[in-house]
Design a binder for these strands. Structure first.
Lengths: 371, 371
DNA sequence: CGCCGTCGTGAAAGCGCTTGCGGTCGAACT
DNA sequence: AGTTCGACCGCAAGCGCTTTCACGACGGCG
């Protein structure tokens, strides 16, 4: 340890916590040997008792447990692990962003999925957070593999790993689960982006729109096949609408990007009557841009997004909802299965559904804004 | 390890990675002894070389490093730690929510603060994530202290710890930094909520409002003195406006809460002409409620929030911006100082500033919406 | 009443690494 | 040329646990 224990605030005032044992106020630094001594047993027995080995007599176990409690003892995960026992499992959570609602929400779900049904009150699994947002961070993560040798499993959240990254990941030597992203090549839980996209665009088509724009995003780190864009294209093709490349603009993620993109679309000789945005955050920017241009949503232009972001309701945004929290929960469950040594669970695709709100209407419609 | 290594996808295809050493395709499970053998030195020298001890000859170091690289070796953090060395430091990140923009954004900052200026390419610090959102989780965290013995420092993000929680935290025996929350009792980085509140409310007062409502939040887990509410009260007192308890409503955090609260305010015999919301998310809901009621913002009612949420611009929301990302960065820096054994750095209070947008205007104003 | 299977417990051998304490050897001294 | 002194390196002792393996003490059996 390079850490100076004295760096903490003055003389610790924890004398009133416990002081059964010899050491006054067990300071958490008591060793297993202290416990054993206090309980009047050997190191081995103490260890066995604490690990619920069946071979120790109930009475002895009690004594050890009491001693441990008295000394305020906690096993050293490092030593425990070194000596072969699994201690509490550790999982790497690899996530590109955290300020976007989707990721944060998914992680909240992941946490409950990982902890779920742990009866002994102990938090089930330690989560090591790896933020790989920018290209540099991402490269560093896959190159240096900082999770190496320190996790028993990993979950990759919301982004696609390419061939070589995948190979690097396998070097971790642990099970990997993917959540909220493409469903290759690990056990994963996602939604069907293709279908979600179709739900959005088909909705516009059903309303009668034919000239439909798309606001796609171009995050340098979030590459991979953009299924939502593909859905857009096939939906239009299926509807017999000719392809018009001008109608697809690629913008940075977020409201600003959405506004910018919508600006571009509005600047076209023949602007679209409806727009499908990559996500609600983008859609929100788009709506705003429409309004700034003196037009109305949905009267002049319909906008549909994806996610059902908490603020989507406020913006009265029609969107395709996806179960974000649940994706996390399910992923957490998968990780637990894998940690328990189970077979890789089958990937799951969770359903999405269209949420009708006030940002879409038939082309040229009027007076439907308040519906 | 209870983890079955075979649980991973079939026969790993990593044979093409490296295979300098004796072991074909170093599988990351090579030990320091392997490295030493390959480099033709003793265990101790190998260790020293890898740890950049000055006492090893440059040539030897090179040889060891090469061997390590060849074998694709990584030290076992557990063993390393056990043996006394700090290995990579670990810090607990304790955070109540993750789906709220503020927290996610702050954590992004924290990550860069923790990693900052680490020239050797290694990710500076391991972050252990602890989500303590609900009361149960919070209780569990402080009671079981799952971070015990596994972190070298902790940062508490965005919430206040009470007396007994603080005492529990000290049991961790490590330095603690608080970020984005109340500034007691640890080294902390925050904004002055009192001042931020004043900026918001004073703004309304300066515009000429006298009947000003407040949308406070009541998260069961986020207790502690609500400085923003206090700021509201003193601002009004200073302005000579009599106290009217009806004008303060306490609602759950979020847009829904904001809408609900605004509904209550609008239902008053004499509704306010302006409202100060605890945060932008709440303010957004409030704005929406106003519009749903057939009134206009800011013409009929002004609304001001706090945060400068990314979507605030879209909603044209006047707000008091706070440097969220930066709070994280600074906190990360503090942690690093503490980890390095430095003295507890002084707490920092970062500045906030009013961002004027279209959701506020003098009472009874009209036609300023587009300004 | 002595033999053997169980149950409960200890002693001791590590897990993979770091490090204090010498030892070796060539270079700089006298 | 005989020493002295660094610079480098190896030996071995742990770090705090888990876990074989072996051992004493039972009780039930023949």
């Amino acid at each position: 340890m390079m850490i100076d224990p004295e760096a903490l605030a003055g003389p610790s005032r924890l004398s009133d916590v416990v002081h059964h044992g010899g050491r006054a106020g067990g300071d958490g630094r008591a060793g297993l040997d202290d416990v054993a001594r206090l309980a009047g047993v050997s190191l081995s027995t103490a260890s066995r008792a604490l690990n619920n080995h069946p071979q120790v007599a109930a009475a002895t176990r009690e004594r050890v447990l009491a001693a441990a409690a008295g000394l305020d003892y906690v096993v050293s995960p490092d030593a425990s692990r070194l000596a072969g026992r699994s201690s509490r499992a550790r999982v790497a959570v690899v996530v590109p962003h955290l300020s976007r609602w989707f990721f944060g929400r998914l992680l909240e779900g992941l946490e409950v999925g990982l902890r779920d049904g742990d009866p002994d009150g102990g938090a089930g699994v330690d989560q090591l957070l790896f933020l790989v947002g920018d290209v540099a961070g991402r490269r560093a993560f896959f190159e240096d593999l900082p999770a190496r040798r320190r996790v028993d499993a990993a979950v990759v959240v919301g982004f696609e790993v390419d061939e070589v990254e995948q190979r690097r990941l396998e070097l971790l030597g642990v099970s990997i689960v993917s959540a909220g992203g493409p469903r290759e090549p690990f056990p994963s839980v996602t939604v069907d982006d293709l279908r979600a996209g179709r739900q959005a665009v088909d909705h516009l088509v059903h309303l009668g729109h034919r000239r439909i724009g798309m606001l796609a995003t171009a995050d340098p780190a979030d590459r991979g096949p953009d299924l939502r864009s593909r859905a857009y294209r096939t939906a239009l093709t299926d509807a017999g609408v000719p392809d018009d490349p001008d109608l697809v603009v690629r913008v940075p993620f977020g409201p600003a990007g959405g506004a910018e993109g919508m600006g571009r679309l509005l600047g076209l000789r023949r602007p679209p009557t409806a727009v499908f945005a990559y996500s609600d955050e983008v859609a929100a920017g788009a709506v705003r841009a429409v309004q700034r241009a003196g037009l109305r949503v949905p009267d002049d232009i319909s906008v549909v997004g994806i996610d059902d972001h908490p603020l989507a309701g406020l913006l009265d945004l029609t969107t395709v909802a996806q179960p974000v929290h649940e994706q996390g929960v399910v992923a957490g469950g998968m990780v637990r299965v894998l940690l328990a040594g189970g077979d890789p669970p089958p990937s799951q695709v969770l359903p999405t559904h269209l949420v009708l709100r006030g940002s879409t209407a038939p082309p040229g419609a009027a007076g439907r804004a308040e519906t």
